[in-house]
Design a binder for these strands. Structure first.
Lengths: 230, 230
DNA sequence: CTATTATTCAATTGATTACTAGACTATAGG
DNA sequence: CCTATAGTCTAGTAATCAATTGAATAATAG
């Protein structure tokens, strides 16, 4: 009985973590917080939930030690507790995508099939930056860029793409990345750029995956969470 | 509304996978099936559940495409659908362990603190096998060994450790591994061996983790699932 | 035709889940 | 001190779900 109870408590601990993540809304929150910290109100706005509901979802995640919070003035900023969260999300994505055709259906429906081109792997990117003539665009909101970005990448939030169109040299390959493999920001940005005659490629994955690979990131220490997302 | 529904369905797919895993019993099953395939009856016996209950847990996992089944005679063998399952379990373990002190408490209680020695990393093992004088023991049940094992490893199920004690040269380092980082088989085996004066080390992780690293495995094509586990 | 093995069904028990509205708390700034 | 802002907490609702067991059913081997 002793051992039985201990064994149950043991597996229970892992099940608790899984249970905290087993909710569409909370996964959406975690994907967002994988980019950078956000205050409750903004999380609520982005996910389309009420403040109260968002707060309670965040409590669930906090109790499972999956997210952490930091109070600043009247605001409470939440962020993922560690890169391990991104790792778990990545595993979950891989396992689900490989097995559930439905996901790709939804992807091609919601994330309209803008980028028909083969995405660029991180190895390819690193290699091509050596031989030069590559411009890397980070098309996420500026606060996410500020938190962590690929060294040398330029911050151009999706809304400002039009503005920079003619400032970029047409001789360079334009590589854009955003939040992750299912994020639409980069494909949308590249659609605009390629319509203007640029040679473009999308980076296969986003910031969290880049960090998981142990690749270097650059940070802008200051401005925390001003801009916003959709 | 269209986009809203698509987004919800999208995250729902991942949440479904997570929900299927968010159960202590099912995690226990998955950890077992990460070793090799097992028939329902044996899974029930090992986990201490009724056949009916085990079957229904397996249906949940099967519907989520996390496990697959194969019918042979009157038996139905289940196995994990891919290494992605082990990957997800590993992420879940890491995230939970790092954040929940409780896990380590339970570990040190249930998995009694037999191995006080620093576990051996796979890099160290590979390095030491080059310089020779290392014997690798796979102390899992023989069917799990047959399914996949470290090249050169000798199969010595825990129950047969005593029998081989004096056949192993004392000049060699004895390295044992089993199912994973929380598996007790190897520590128990090593306790016996070190009591007999052997120099012993435990491999830090088990077969699934070894495979996740892309390291080579050896297989004995035949005998499927005869021996058993506890 | 019988024993074995697994699945399914029905029923029980017990609990969670997501969510909203409104009360409450904490903080910043006048 | 007062007020607006931001977030948390509580209670209630409606909806499910979850784990389990035992009995009935199905599939297969011999």
């Amino acid at each position: 009985m002793e051992a039985r109870e201990a064994k149950d408590r043991f597996y229970e601990a892992f099940a608790n973590t899984a249970r905290a993540i087993a909710s569409p809304k909370r996964i959406e929150i975690l994907e967002l917080l994988a980019q950078t910290e956000y205050p409750v109100e903004e999380i609520a706005r982005i996910t389309g939930m009420t403040i109260a509901n968002t707060s309670s979802h965040l409590q669930v995640l906090k109790q499972a030690k999956i997210v952490e919070s930091r109070k600043q003035g009247t605001k409470v900023f939440y962020q993922n507790a560690s890169l391990g969260v991104s790792d778990l999300l990545a595993s979950l994505r891989t396992l689900t995508r490989a097995r559930v055709a439905e996901v790709d259906q939804v992807v091609s429906e919601y994330f309209t099939a803008r980028d028909s081109f083969e995405p660029l792997s991180h190895e390819e990117l690193l290699q091509r930056t050596k031989t030069g003539d590559v411009i890397i665009l980070d098309v996420r909101p500026t606060n996410e860029y500020a938190h962590a970005h690929i060294p040398g990448a330029i911050s151009v939030p999706l809304g400002e793409i039009e503005a920079v169109v003619d400032t970029l040299p047409k001789s360079s390959l334009i590589v854009a990345y955003c939040r992750g493999p299912f994020c639409v920001l980069a494909p949308q940005a590249l659609e605009i750029l390629s319509a203007h005659g640029y040679e473009t490629r999308r980076l296969a994955s986003g910031m969290p995956e880049w960090q998981l690979l142990g690749l270097p990131v650059e940070t802008n220490e200051h401005s925390s969470t001003q801009a916003n997302a959709g």
